[in-house]
Computed example of a mutant assay.
Amino acid sequence: MLLPSVSPVKEIHARLQSIFPEGSPNRNNCTWEIAARTIFVMLYIGAIEGTDIWIRPDQVTRMTDDQSEQLSEAERLAWTKESVKSSKGEIPGRWYAVNTRESIRDDTIRAGLIANGVVIEREGLATTSPAPRYALASEFTKLLDPALSGKKLTKAIADWQADHLNAGALARIAIVRRGAIAGGDHVLVKFPSGETRRMAPGPSSIISKAVIEVFAPSFLQTPGVVFLSESRNKVVSRDDELAKAIGLNIKAEKNLPDIVLADLGPKHPILIFIEVVATDGPVTKERRQALLQLAKEAGFPPEHVAFATAFLDRSDSAFKKVFDSLAWGTFVWLASEPDNLIYLHEGQTQLVRALAEWK
């Protein structure tokens, strides 16, 4: 038989980063080193859709660095045959301990590779069967061809993503990528009133734009932007007329929020303080109290005030870094998943149907 070409684990690992960019569903499960090693072993033994060759997770644990460099067809076939036999004694230099096979199966293969169309599962096997059951999807295998590079590789990856990742996943990738590379041009923000204003380029501005253009009309009945700031220019714009109408006196030198929205739809207007996090600065317990005091001074009782922290994506390092410091009783919104809203509920059970009805 003719076994496929196989690249070193390091090269497979690097290629996975391009195939599954930031924002991809279950990205970590598809891009960590153990995923690259799992895929390497599949290629090594020729476990590819249509060949009727399959692997067991424990075969990945049995691979060694020394064996991975033995690339003749005879050496690969001999190892494949040996790797499914009952183990007799320790395997020197094995990649993973025996009990790692469950993690490879559940976290890497099922949660990551199968979920994203990278791996297929053999049909007709009982759940408890020890027989090999996993193989690489043939279309995905083409992306790992060592001869594929440059523009041809870029196009092949884009074509595969279009065919195998759903519209929501592709949109999420595009949003996250745009936030990550935001550079030269100013970010044009369109307010609910139709007015447009410019912000300096950068991830924070991308998130702010999404909050005003997507979050506000989605979760507020009659949205208005009272205040907008950014890290480089503390006061980008303020609607003094609207602020005055609702009794809000924001001082740039005191507890300056990133964005202040007002929902004028309810009988009693709601004030929404939003912190934009590209690196740091969420609504913590202390921050919530400071902003609540600011609202109180403007005549807004706590039941008419809401707080939210906006992130680019939940796979982003900024989200993971600050999540455990977020205050209870606040919302979390992700620009890459704009239809969803996380509420850190504290107190009696309740159903949050809309931001205007959060209390």
Rank of each mutant, 00 (worst) to 15 (best):
V187F: 13
S129C: 12
G168D: 14
F215K: 01
S336P: 08
Q350N: 07
L170T: 09
P8E: 13
H13S: 15
W54E: 01
A252D: 03
G183C: 07
V277C: 12
W32G: 10
F300I: 12
I173F: 12
P338D: 00
R94K: 11
R122C: 06
G183L: 09
I45M: 03
R288D: 05
K151H: 15
R56W: 01
Q350K: 13
V283Y: 08
L148P: 11
K321G: 03
N255I: 03
N99Y: 14
V187D: 14
F227R: 01
E33M: 15
R37V: 14
N166H: 11
I120M: 07
P338K: 01
T128L: 11
L355C: 04
T154Q: 14
S7L: 07
A14H: 11
T64V: 05
A111C: 07
T330S: 15
D339R: 00
G93M: 00
V305F: 08
D58Q: 04
R197N: 10
E275Y: 12
T128I: 06
A97D: 11
S103L: 14
A158C: 14
L341D: 02
Q221G: 02
P4A: 02
A162E: 15
G224W: 06
A14Y: 08
G117K: 03
G89L: 02
V118E: 03
A74Q: 13
L2C: 01
I19M: 06
F227K: 01
N116V: 04
S325G: 05
D145K: 03
M1I: 05
A167K: 12
V187R: 11
C30D: 05
V211W: 03
L143F: 14
V84C: 06
V277F: 13
A156P: 14
K254T: 08
Q17S: 12
H345E: 05
L3F: 02
T64S: 11
I12C: 10
R172I: 12
R56E: 04
N99S: 12
P57S: 04
G150A: 09
